[in-house]
Simulated scan of single mutants.
Amino acid sequence: KQSSVTADEIREKLSSIVPEYMVPNHIEFYESLPVSANGKIDRKAIIGSFSNVNTSMKEEDRPRGELENRVANIWQRILKLENISRNDDFFMSGGDSLTATRFVQTLQQENITSAPLPLRTLFSTPTIASICSYIEQNSLRDHGDAADNSYEEGTL
């Protein structure tokens, strides 16, 4: 029995289950997934099919503030993308474990994070909005800890 589900129905159901940033803006239906010469799913062909999608972005989807814009710039360079939303998923945008490692390293190299970000963090916070929120929360916590320990007895 074949079911005919619409993209809107899928988005509506997802929005009741997951946070808004995890609900895709665009859903593509395939009769069958494209495969590469070695028989694996051809992710590049799937990502390439999204090039025909309307790339106009709503103002609320654009990166916000200095941190999000800096992270978005790195994201764009590593994934070779022109336009990205603060709610785009790193891995759905073409990222893989190798580019994720480069992304995390670049965050530290460009002084966005003071310590290496655990790679698993990108898997659990895969959007610009969520990774920046994580960075802000953890840097505030680190800053608070540093302030508490900045003066020891007998030092000025």
Rank of each mutant, 00 (worst) to 15 (best):
V5W: 11
A7G: 13
E9N: 05
I10V: 15
R11D: 04
R11S: 01
E12R: 04
E12A: 06
K13Y: 14
L14R: 14
S15E: 14
S15T: 10
S16C: 11
I17K: 10
I17M: 08
I17W: 03
V18Q: 09
P19R: 13
M22K: 12
M22D: 12
V23N: 13
P24E: 02
P24I: 03
H26S: 09
H26P: 03
I27D: 02
E28K: 15
F29G: 01
Y30C: 05
Y30W: 15
Y30H: 13
E31P: 02
L33V: 02
N38C: 07
N38M: 02
N38H: 11
N38E: 12
D42F: 02
D42Y: 09
D42L: 06
D42M: 00
R43K: 15
K44Q: 15
A45T: 15
A45C: 14
I47T: 14
G48P: 12
N52P: 02
T55V: 05
S56M: 09
M57W: 09
E59A: 05
E59Q: 05
E60A: 06
D61Q: 11
D61C: 07
G65L: 06
E66I: 06
E68V: 02
N69K: 15
R70T: 09
R70M: 11
V71F: 01
A72W: 06
I74G: 01
W75T: 07
Q76A: 12
K80L: 04
N83M: 08
N83R: 12
I84S: 02
R86F: 03
R86T: 06
N87D: 06
F90Q: 04
S93A: 12
G94L: 00
G94Y: 01
G95H: 00
G95K: 03
R102P: 00
V104R: 03
Q105M: 04
T106Q: 14
Q109H: 09
I112K: 05
S114W: 03
S114V: 01
P116C: 00
L117T: 12
T121M: 01
F123S: 02
F123G: 00
T125H: 14
I128R: 04
S130Q: 11
C132L: 08
S133N: 15
Y134H: 08
Y134F: 13
I135V: 10
Q137Y: 03
S139F: 06
S139G: 03
R141A: 10
D142H: 10
D142F: 04
H143Y: 11
A146N: 14
A147G: 04
N149F: 03
S150G: 04
Y151G: 01
E153D: 12
